[in-house]
Nucleic acid binder design. Structure first.
Length: 272
DNA sequence: ACCCAGGAAATTC
DNA sequence: GAATTTCATGGG
């Protein structure tokens, strides 16, 4: 297996991007690299200066990895645009300037954020790990792909007991069945107007406004999405009192990720 | 023992 | 219809 290299990479920190609560399948290793699985392909990633290394990836997947890390978007420009909107937004971006919004697989984002509800990131990661290990295809060296909708649709909520996701088991199975039988077509949702896309996702039991917004942002790269979880509600109340989230415009989702990570990293600022 | 976690469904008022 | 309660699980 070979190593893919991308040169002249700006505005990317792997730690900030892979450990800021937008994805749940990357593990930091002793040497500072990250190991993960994307679209059934395992790889270890690290940076040396402005060069990004994807170890274990094939040359034919170069576009796939460039797409995953959203390398075609100029984040310096995005940060400039967002920072003039509000000074606290500028501070949040300076705190973690290497955050990017990954282009995750929509189906994986859907299940991951169904699991995320009323949960914490550490436990979400554990549940996703067990979901893959129990029901995903083995892809070598004890590593597993994310299970497909068809694979999960064949199961019942009781079959998910080993992943210990509690009341979310039936939500996962409902999402799998509706995706597998075509009731929900994530690639079709990608092209719908925002509110229609959100309403369509909310046909799944266990998908409300916030989970739908996360699927749209992290799985379908709708950068105008602005998921409001408990942290973002605290942060917007404290930092942007009375401000309409839509003021962040077309890149509101990127603003949201800077602010979310900033708030979670400074909890003392947001506890009343 | 209690409270909370990247919420949403079910129930009650 | 709007406000409240319940839903599993694990860590602080």
């Amino acid at each position: 297996m070979s190593t893919l290299i991308f040169d002249k990479i700006q505005d990317l920190s792997l730690k900030e991007t892979l450990d800021c609560g937008q994805c749940f399948r990357w593990k930091e290793r002793e040497d500072g690299s990250f190991f993960g699985v994307v679209r059934g392909r395992a790889a270890a990633v690290h940076m040396e200066g402005d060069r990004l290394f994807i170890d274990g990836a094939k040359e034919c997947d170069r576009d796939l990895w460039a797409d995953y890390f959203d390398l075609s978007l100029d984040y310096a420009d995005v940060k400039e645009q967002l920072s003039v909107i509000h000074p606290e937004m500028a501070s949040a971006a300076r705190f973690a300037p290497g955050i990017r919004i990954l282009r995750q697989e929509p189906w994986e984002a859907l299940i991951s954020f169904i699991i995320s509800q009323n949960n914490n990131i550490k436990r979400i990661t554990g549940i996703v790990d067990r979901l893959c290990a129990h029901f995903g295809d083995p892809i070598g060296d004890g590593v597993f792909a994310f299970p497909t909708a068809e694979q999960l649709a064949a199961l019942s909520p009781e079959d998910l007991m080993p992943i210990r996701a509690g009341f979310r088991h039936r939500y996962i199975i409902d999402a799998a069945q509706k995706t597998a039988d075509g009731t929900i077509d994530l690639e079709q949702i990608r092209h719908l107007p925002y509110d229609a896309a959100r309403q369509t996702l909310m046909q799944i039991t266990g998908v409300g406004v916030k989970v739908a917004d996360c699927v749209l942002l992290y799985g379908l790269h709708r950068l105008e999405s602005f998921p409001l979880d408990v942290w973002m509600k605290r942060a917007t109340a404290t930092l942007f009192d009375g401000m309409d989230p839509s003021a962040f415009g077309a890149y509101a989702g990127i603003a949201q990720q800077y602010i979310f990570h900033y708030a979670r990293s400074h909890p003392e600022k947001f506890i009343n």
